[in-house]
Amino acid sequence: MDALVRKRRRAFVEERDCVACGCCMKICPKTAISIWHGIAAKVDPETCVGCGKCARECPASVIEIREVTV
C-alpha cells in the first residue's frame, strides 16, 4: 500500500523582492513570520498554516501560498 501523502498549505516569500516592511509579520495569527535582519520576511514552515492573510496584506505582493507535501 502506498504511504499516505498529506498536503498542507504554506506561505512562501519571494525574498529578492521583499521590502521587509513587516506587514505580514503583524497580521500573521500564528506569529510564524519574522523579518530577518531587516532584509526580508522569513516564514517558519512548522508554524505556518497557510491561511493566506500575509499574502493578502503584503503591499509588494511577494508572498504566495503553495501546497506542499509533508
Binding site: A20, C58, P59, A60, S61
Partner: peptide, 18 residues
C-alpha cells in the same frame, strides 16, 4: 490604487534602512 501600505514598497526611508 493598490494595497493600503503600498507606500512602504517605495518609501525612501524604508529603502535606505533596508
Amino acid at each position: 490604487l493598490f494595497k493600503p501600505r503600498s507606500w512602504c514598497v517605495y518609501c525612501p526611508m524604508g529603502t535606505m534602512t533596508q
